[in-house]
């Protein structure tokens, strides 16, 4: 299937990836080729499928409600791009 250029732009916005005009047609062509591949799925007869979560029938383990983490702000923020006063800084958030 062919994907529209405008759709690529929408996807890039949703995924927060800057795409420039030069690469967009190349990206469009490559995505179209991948979508052609995955379009083979539509041929599959899945009418008799029941939804089973996982083959091993495993279920979620639950954790006891006990504090197990100590304050590690210093170590965690040592590798952060920009912090001040214990906060992670980003360009102004406008709601």
């Amino acid at each position: 299937m062919n994907i529209e250029r405008s759709e690529i732009e929408k996807l890039a916005t949703l995924a927060r990836i800057a795409i420039n005009d030069e690469t967009i047609s190349e990206v469009t062509a490559r995505l179209s080729s991948v979508l052609e591949l995955v379009d083979q799925l539509s041929a599959a007869d899945t009418s008799a499928i029941e939804n089973v979560a996982n083959p091993l029938q495993a279920t979620q383990r639950l954790r006891e409600d006990e504090v197990a983490e100590i304050n590690q702000r210093e170590a965690l923020q040592a590798i952060a791009p920009d912090t001040e006063a214990g906060l992670f800084l980003v360009p102004k958030v406008i709601e």
Binding site: F88, L89, K92, V93
Partner: peptide, 16 residues
């Protein structure tokens, strides 16, 4: 997201 406080102007601070 904190928009003003004990950090430089023009940015927001994130407390998680």
């Amino acid at each position: 997201s904190l928009h003003e406080g004990d950090f430089r102007h023009g940015v927001s601070g994130i407390d998680l």
